[in-house]
Amino acid sequence: MYVPRDGELDEVAALIRNAQRVLIITGAGISADSGLPTYRGIGGLYHERLTKEGLTIEEALSGDMMARHPEVAWRYIAEIEANCRGAQPNAAHNVIADLEREKPGVWVLTQNVDSLHRMAGSQKVIEIHGKVHHLRCTECHHQRSVQDFAGLSLPPACPVCGGVLRPDVVLFGESLPQKGLDRLAHVLEQGVDLVMSIGTTSAFPYIAGPVWWAQQAGVPTVEINPGETEVSRIVDHRLRMGAAKAMTQIWARLHPQ
């Protein structure tokens, strides 16, 4: 069983205590303690298996598939949503929200579409991949939010023009939202005192990029992830722990009884 080296949790807590502006980058691993699958990770929803159409999940959940065969894309979007339904923020989400309340310079860049950071109370969240429960029409400007997909016919039709509704998320092969990229650039331009990567493999350049930027700029970096990732070898502190356990222990050091 992994045990952090003596004093490492204290060192990470001290970095947070002394920082005013913190960028926290999160991925599917932070929501694992809320019961959500990591999709493509070990034991994930689509780990080493194809869809019933013989497609990879990247093919099934692509923008091209949504355009050509929305019923296929929607089948797997709905499967993922069903596995997320009813999930609540866990201790890691709650600690991050509490940190923002203490330090208004805390920002979250998340790949997750589950909105758990906002449910926990975080306000400064860049949801770079969108929100699964916010739908938009592919033909007109109609948008709506839904609590879940249980009552939807798939693919759902737009009540205004009859076009296909789709979740307002970034599918494989689609461009990232410029507004989110601009907001991230602004956060980095303003300067940060600490970059934390939590529960993400950092496989995408825009997720690993801020960690590499911090390393080159001399800004301290912390990774919380049980497994090896694309940034594990360059961070200053690597906690091979689950997000909820690590953040709970860090919070306890920031607020000793």
Results as ranks from 00 to 15, higher is better:
G7Q: 10
G7E: 09
N18V: 00
N18H: 06
A19F: 00
L23K: 05
G29T: 04
S31I: 00
G35D: 00
G35F: 00
K52H: 05
T56E: 06
I57W: 03
E58G: 01
L61M: 12
M66A: 14
R68N: 14
Y76W: 05
A78T: 04
P89S: 09
H93D: 13
A97P: 09
R101I: 05
E102F: 05
V106H: 05
N112R: 03
D114G: 06
D114C: 07
H117L: 08
H117Q: 11
M119H: 09
E127Y: 03
K131A: 15
H134I: 12
C137L: 10
E139Y: 02
H141C: 12
R144Q: 14
R144P: 06
S145M: 09
V146R: 01
Q147D: 14
D148Q: 10
A150L: 11
C161I: 13
G162Y: 04
G163P: 05
R166Y: 06
D168S: 13
L171V: 04
L171C: 08
L176G: 13
D182A: 15
R183W: 12
A185C: 12
L188F: 07
L188M: 12
E189S: 15
V192W: 01
V195N: 00
T201C: 08
P205G: 06
Y206N: 13
Y206F: 15
Y206A: 13
P210Q: 05
W212Q: 12
W213L: 11
W213T: 09
A214Y: 02
Q216C: 10
Q216G: 09
V222S: 04
V222I: 08
G227D: 14
E228T: 13
S232F: 04
V235T: 05
R238S: 12
R240N: 14
R240S: 15
R240H: 14
A244S: 11
K245S: 15
A246D: 11
